[in-house]
Design a protein around this nucleic acid. Structure first.
Length: 525
RNA sequence: GGCCCCAUCGUCUAAUGGUUAGGACACCACCCUUUCAAGGUGAGAAUCCCGGUUCGAGUCCGGGUGGGGCUGCCA
């Protein structure tokens, strides 16, 4: 093994003396005191100003895994890309989790939870690697690397900094000092001892053992521009010292698994169990091919849009959870479990192939979800949504809470016959908007039978019970020699402007005598 | 190009190597009905292809094909 750098040089290379030794870090972040079998998981987003539905999917897996094993679920912010910082991005993530009722437990003992605040830890680990000759300062510039890449492509070699292309891999002490004296700031690269001729076997909880060629690339561990770690190095340090037991991440990380194994091996640490999730996909309208849901082309992939449209949060969660644990749906339908939090799932069953995001199925979960709510819950949800997202016109519908409650109570009394045409809070309010005079649009197309409507008005009594009311309708139908349904339809369109509505008797009871008379008279003219 | 992952009805999926390949959503038909939603009943619909192992393959192995990912001082 080659010699490592001397402490004085490490200090110069890193810009400061490392704050901790490895044993100090081990002591500072001891193994967690948790029951046997408890999972320690985390959601580790980079703050891009956007919460993707795929992110929510991963949060759900992570938090369920922790919840069902009495473990810990953390939120760690991967803000190591200073070039891409977005204002308020972290708040968007935190708010999204809160909206969905997904909580995390960031015990400060294992913090901080912003990677930008963990520099001391990364540098201390890097110092150890430097001292052992397993990392080195690299003074290659962007232009240097661009040139190397071009040469490699031209020659048909794999691109990257490895082997003979790693110019600074074996710099002498005096050469390093010369660069530093010259004012150059190095990045810290892995001194890879991997040999692509050999294979390394890595484990994924759902796919099992996967063989890869060993990694021989000298990947960057610490970036030169800001001294922050790359994802790979941060993952190594953080998931070790936060004592993460299970890393749930997207399948795009599968290819870096051999590198991550290599890093853990070099440190003598046990790698976590990895769970690589598949993507949530859609069919591209232009190409007709399946592809990952993207934030640019698919507005429904933005959790903020889902919330703004008023999807019931539990329905979204249940939809996603049923992808993760396909047995959930049946268990719920049979009444074996009440919610996703009662259903225990096995990580091995998480699907490996990409799932198409199915709006129709989401709608079904939403309808079922709303149908199961009490009227009070329904009203509370609609009101909460409107207060936050509705325009002032729409807010009229929540100004009289008792009236709103009466409207939303229609066809909810019989558990077997609960209306299932409410999908989102936004759509619910527009579905019932004809109850408000401001929104009511008289139907100009429908050909009313004025005689029938006059006959209705002459016998109308709001105090009639349902049977009495219906008998009067039948009587009118007989008198005019038309079908009962025709009379009802005249009335329906007069009252609501629509041809499809819930039960008319209920509608009239809610609307009240004056409004009924006014609208029927309006239709007659 | 190289490396890696994946592949069951339209969609999400179930199936210790032995079932008539099961369920849900969607779709269709019929019933109920003051329209719609709901509810009830029913129908159609799948193991990517070719080999091999086996008494027996959706399941195991090999090779194709198709889709996806990685190949950044982004995560």
């Amino acid at each position: 093994m080659r010699d490592g750098l001397k402490p004085e040089l490490i200090e110069r290379v890193l810009g400061a003396k490392p704050k901790y030794t490895l044993p100090e870090l081990e002591e500072k972040f001891p193994p967690r005191d948790l029951p046997a079998g408890a999972f320690v998981t985390r959601f580790a987003p980079s703050p891009t100003g956007f919460m993707h539905i795929g992110g929510l999917y991963q949060v759900l897996i992570n938090s369920k895994l922790a919840q069902q094993t009495n473990g810990v679920f953390m939120l760690r912010i991967e803000d190591t890309d200073t070039k891409r910082e977005v204002k308020d991005a972290v708040q968007i993530i935190i708010d999204s989790l809160k909206s969905f009722g997904l909580s995390y437990n960031n015990d400060e003992k294992y913090g901080p939870y912003y990677q930008s605040q963990r520099k001391d830890i990364y540098h201390s680990v890097a110092a150890d690697l430097l001292a052992r000759g397993l990392a080195y300062p690299c003074f290659l510039t962007a232009a240097d690397m661009e040139r190397i890449r071009a040469e490699q492509s031209a020659a048909g070699f794999p691109t990257g900094i490895y082997g003979e292309f790693a110019r600074d891999r074996d710099l002498t002490e005096s050469e390093i000092i010369a660069h530093l004296d010259n004012g150059e700031v190095p990045s810290i690269r892995l001194y890879s001892n991997g040999n692509p001729e050999r294979r390394i076997f890595c484990k994924d909880a759902v796919r099992g053992s996967i063989g890869f060629p060993e990694n021989n690339e000298d990947l960057v561990l610490i970036k030169s521009n800001d001294g922050l770690p790359t994802y790979h190095f941060a993952h190594l340090c953080d998931d070790h010292f936060m004592r993460t037991t299970h890393v749930v991440r997207g399948a795009e990380w599968l290819s870096s698994l051999p590198l991550h194994y290599q890093l853990f091996q070099m440190m003598g640490w046990t790698p976590p169990m990895y769970i690589h999730t598949s993507t949530l996909d859609t069919i591209d309208k232009d190409t007709g091919k399946q592809r990952k849901l993207s934030k640019r082309h698919d507005p429904e992939s933005n959790v903020a849009n889902l919330l703004a449209d008023g999807w019931p949060v539990m329905a979204v969660l249940e939809y996603l959870f049923n992808i993760i644990a396909s047995g959930y749906e049946e268990a719920k339908l049979k009444g074996a479990v009440k919610s996703i939090w009662d259903y225990e799932f096995r990580p091995k069953k998480i699907p490996m192939s990409g799932a198409l995001f199915d709006m129709k199925k989401l709608e079904w979960w939403a309808k079922e979800n709303i149908a199961q709510m009490s009227v009070d819950e329904l009203v509370a949800n609609v009101v909460a949504w409107a207060q936050k997202y509705a325009d002032s016109m729409r807010k009229e519908q929540i100004s009289d809470l008792q009236y709103l409650r009466n409207v939303l109570s229609i066809e909810r009394d019989n558990p077997k016959r609960i209306r299932k045409d409410f999908i989102t809070w936004r759509q619910t309010l527009s579905e019932v908007e004809y109850f408000w005079d401001k929104f009511f649009v008289p139907n100009r197309e429908y050909e009313f039978n004025a005689d029938v409507l006059n006959a209705f008005l002459s016998t109308f009594n709001i105090a009639d019970d349902k049977d009495t009311w219906w008998n009067k309708i039948v009587e009118i139908a007989n008198r005019f020699g038309i079908k009962n349904g025709d009379v009802a339809m005249n009335l329906r369109v007069a009252l609501t402007g629509r041809t499809n509505t819930p039960d008319l008797y209920s509608i009239m009871q809610v609307m009240g005598k004056d409004r009924v008379i006014e609208r029927v008279q309006g239709a007659i003219k």
